[in-house]
Amino acid sequence: MTPLKERLVQLEVLRYNPDTDTEAHFQRYEVVCQEEWVVLDALNKVKADIDPTLNYRWSCHMAVCGSCGMMINGEPKLSCHAFLRDYEGVIRVEPLAHFPVERDLVTAPDDFMEKLKRVKPYMIPKEKKPISEGEYKQTPAQLMKFRQYSMCINCMLCYAACPQYGLTPSFIGPAALTLAHRYNQDSRDGGRAERQEVVATHEGVWECTFVGACSEVCPAQVDPASALQQMKITSSLDWIVEHLIPGGKP
């Protein structure tokens, strides 16, 4: 049996407690970890053995609940999916960028939650039918048109990475727009026109300058950049139909 490899890890964590602090400050922790651990395991060890006052969110430890996003060495990451083996030296851990901090590594996602709701991310069926009539038929090929866009875990890493969201907080942003696209692309759905009122505005897809940082950091391979690109194309087509074709409706 090969013994587990241990390693002394140094973490530099940005701390802030609105009850007592006027501004945020870094705190250094040294903690013995196993080589195969993730940053979240290191934080959990700090909390259990060294400093119970450190605060952060987590639950699933398998990159699916979307709770544990934070900046690790300046990059937005899920801490349960940031492997210590990929880091050398002091690891710097900060709250997710572009969101207000509640305390320590806990940010307030209110703006994101509100934007999710605004894009009407639910089925607006083309034809309503009762459950007793069975499923809406959907071929595997039709499913593949949107499946990828339905994989978003709402971790908000793409918002932390998006320079445009940083500059223009009214931008609806990658994940919420992608979710609108997910329903638009679903063969069962007929709600695109309703969603366009939000999506095809200057706060919507037109705000995106196609930097592509969102897709780079996305831990769920959603590729929001491609969704936004597709949306721009179809929105332009709408415009052409509406303005250049007599009697055309998008």
Partner: peptide, 13 residues
């Protein structure tokens, strides 16, 4: 299914 859950499908949908 009616609410949009992306269930896997058979070839016939």
């Amino acid at each position: 299914e009616h609410w949009g859950c992306p269930w896997n499908r058979e070839a016939d949908g």
